[in-house]
Design a binder for these strands. Structure first.
Ligand SMILES: [Mn+2]
Ligand SMILES: [Mn+2]
Ligand SMILES: [Zn+2]
Ligand SMILES: [Zn+2]
Lengths: 147, 147
DNA sequence: CTCCTTATTGATAATGATTTTCATTATCAA
DNA sequence: TTGATAATGAAAATCATTATCAATAAGGAG
């Protein structure tokens, strides 16, 4: 699904949820849907403002809240902070993040059930959910650090 | 290693680092070292204050900063917030957290290198680090939800 | 053990990100 | 086109975390 399509999907999902379609929300969705990296509210505000003059930072926070509530967007946790947002995973996916440029990409989650059973057996825990995130260098940043 | 031993280790490591041994720090370390769950600064303050009258919240923040810097304590990220701290992992371990009571336990990290190579191959990313965390129910909370 | 340097402490004020309030404006169903 | 009301942005309020600073205590030198 390409970026404009994602934006459209988000706006429609918001409409179903009873939220109105506004210029502010469209701008915010467009920017976030086409972002290659997870963005923090202030960045998203600065970028979205270029498409929607007069946009307020509060509206960015409020829009993110709705998108997250609908499961369309997810908060990204990183060593440097946990206030960045990115398009949510589709199905069982996890994030791979470049520690140099911040580029984020989803990959299909592997079956870790054997590991989970092992853990469950050893510790008496019933595993229900898991967080997995990889950090490293994207192709571009690998080349950059080589030269 | 039992809790008093952990406390001692922490205080000694801090001493090597050039930090003085004080009643406030001892109290904070004792509480955190013996905690079964990750604790947030305010909780840690409330508990530690019982062992060190007059303790200030600021000192909790400052002590956590040092312990984290020395790699003895780690911040724990959870859906509900990212301001809790717990004894750091020893070697390659990951956390298993009970979503009902918060109980946290480390388990030995499995070898996921095959998965990482797979990801690297498909996405051109060079994997350098990973975060894995499991959520579920501890034994006690499983029983509680059954009854 | 005593003294002295200086790290540590807690009270207090400052900061900065996120939320709330509220009067004005815009959406969209009828 | 109209009207009920959701959405907006400016401004104020919150709240966790940090910075200041004068008083105190740790611990090495003598
Ligand atoms: Mn986090
Ligand atoms: Mn691992
Ligand atoms: Zn990169
Ligand atoms: Zn539990």
């Amino acid at each position: 699904m390409n970026d404009p399509a994602i934006t459209q999907t988000w706006l429609e999902a918001m409409a179903v949820h009873g939220a109105r379609q506004t210029a502010a929300r469209r701008a915010i969705c467009e920017v976030l849907a086409s972002a290659a990296r997870a963005m923090e509210p202030l960045e998203l505000f600065t970028e979205s403002r270029k498409r929607c003059a007069g946009l307020g930072l509060v509206t960015v926070y409020r829009t993110l809240e709705i998108l997250e509530e609908l499961g369309l967007v997810a908060r990204v946790h990183q060593p440097g902070g946990c206030n960045r947002y990115i398009r949510a995973a589709e199905g069982h996916q996890h994030l791979m993040i470049c520690s140099a440029c911040g580029k984020a990409e989803y990959f299909e989650g592997d079956d870790l059930s054997r590991l989970f059973q092992q853990v469950a057996g050893r510790s008496d825990f019933l595993v229900q959910d898991h967080w997995l995130q990889l950090f490293g260098l994207c192709r571009a940043c690998q080349s950059a650090s080589t030269s």
